[in-house]
Amino acid sequence: MASKIKYYGLATPNGQKVSVALEEMDLEYEPHIINIMKNEQFTPEFIAINPNSKIPAIVDPNGPDGKEFNCMESGAILLYLADKTGKFLSHDPRLKWETIQWVMFQMGGIGPMFGQFGHFFKYAKDKCQDPYPVERYTTEVKRLLGVLEKRLEGRDFIIDDGYSIADMAIFPWVGCVETGYQGGEKLGLKNFPKVMAWKNRCLERPKTAKAMTVCSLH
């Protein structure tokens, strides 16, 4: 019987969340690159796994009922893997729900807003001359970074009992706006020292660092 989880993704922030979880939770998995630049997410084979045609996705041959289980949406995958392994999601009810709140904060705020910033700041420069989109998303990204900066006062990680799926969900996006989108100066990342120190702290974990290049095209 197959035992390895099949992971379909790319080394983007949403993909890195899942590869980090798989590595940190010591799960056996097979990485499969889905090259979104070649529209591989729209193939019938991938749509059968994720009908929304988005990365990442996993196929667990040993799902909750012992049968194969497909899971889409990066936040849902983090919660699924944490539940499956009992790792990186506190068993204390208060801390558990704090963690889930911060995962949702990433899903509803950090991901969409950081992604739109990157699109207009880096990729749509020649397509949109109107400064409004860049300024709008710059303002919102700074606001969200401010929320993180305040949360990290007196904390090494997002949740008080240590590294969790909340950190895994959020820190890849901070790294992306800094290096992927090259938005450090525009966003004034130096004005968020706690956030940047926390991001580096996450990357100091060997398994997390290893996971960042899983399914990389380079």
Rank of each mutant, 00 (worst) to 15 (best):
R151E: 02
A211G: 15
G183A: 05
D26Q: 14
A2R: 15
N70A: 09
Q101F: 04
F114N: 03
R155Q: 14
K127V: 02
S90K: 04
W97R: 07
M212Y: 11
R155K: 15
K84S: 08
K142H: 00
Q116S: 12
S74G: 09
Y80S: 09
A169V: 11
Y132I: 07
K194C: 06
Q41V: 04
A124R: 12
E140P: 06
T12N: 04
G15C: 07
I55E: 01
P56G: 03
E178W: 09
C176T: 15
G162A: 03
H218I: 10
I170F: 12
L89D: 08
I170R: 02
F120M: 04
A11W: 04
E98I: 02
F157M: 05
L152Q: 06
M168D: 10
N39D: 13
I165M: 10
A169F: 15
L189K: 11
M113F: 06
P61A: 04
I55H: 01
K84E: 01
L27G: 01
P206V: 13
G154D: 08
D160N: 10
R155D: 08
P131M: 07
F120P: 04
W173H: 11
W97M: 11
Q116R: 13
E23T: 07
S53N: 14
A166V: 07
Y163H: 14
H91V: 14
K84V: 08
G175S: 04
M1Y: 03
T12G: 01
V195A: 02
I36E: 10
K150C: 01
F46G: 07
I33F: 08
K4A: 10
I47Q: 09
S19I: 11
F121A: 03
L187P: 13
P44V: 04
G183H: 00
W102P: 09
M107R: 06
L152A: 06
F117I: 02
G118R: 01
P31I: 05
W198G: 10
K54C: 09
E98L: 05
D161I: 00
A82D: 00
K142F: 01
K190L: 02
E153Y: 13
E40I: 10
E204Q: 15
M25T: 03
N35P: 08
A57R: 08
N14V: 13
M37E: 14
D26V: 03
S216F: 11
I55K: 09
L22R: 13
G175T: 01
G75C: 05
D130C: 06
K142S: 01
M25W: 01
N39Q: 14
E98Q: 12
F69L: 11
Y29G: 06
F46D: 07
N50K: 04
L148M: 06
L203D: 12
I159E: 09
Y163M: 05
